[in-house]
Amino acid sequence: MIRLKNSCRTRHKKVRSFGLLLVLGALLGSCAGQRQPGIGGDGQPIRAFKDTDQGTFSVRWASIPHPIPINEPFELVLEVLGPDVNPLLEADGWMPGHGHGMVRTPRVTPLEDGSMGERRFLVKGMLFHMEGAWELRIAIAWRHEQGDTFSIQRENVVFEVEI
């Protein structure tokens, strides 16, 4: 397996001049900025990638709008670095202090790969209906083949968000 963690891959894909992607690029900041947490020119924090629990993938995110509003729908852009598998993503919110999650099931749309070869996803239907400490829980599942059998692998990464 190729491990691609916190490294800027050199593979450049042709990115169509697709308005959304430009916005996303701006939202997530440049690759060079990723190790230094701070605020980018667009007001979004420049985020670091975080590894999934087994270390197979690295994930980072940005919200639209930023910061995440209380009790209003928002969208997420997720970027995933990792081996060349076909990952399925699930995004969910959880309030560890309250023992409940979101009142919605968000939907994920794959976007075109980014310039570092990172996979990009748009998550619609997020809603944090209460203020307080939330966990943004991302699960990545994929099909792992061995000979003519396969299993479904699943790894998680959790980001803490205070709204």
Partner: peptide, 15 residues
């Protein structure tokens, strides 16, 4: 109370 009763309506509008 504000956890559920918040915003202009004093309701989170959920259940």
């Amino acid at each position: 109370c504000h956890l559920c009763h918040h915003g202009p309506l004093l309701s989170d509008m959920e259940f």
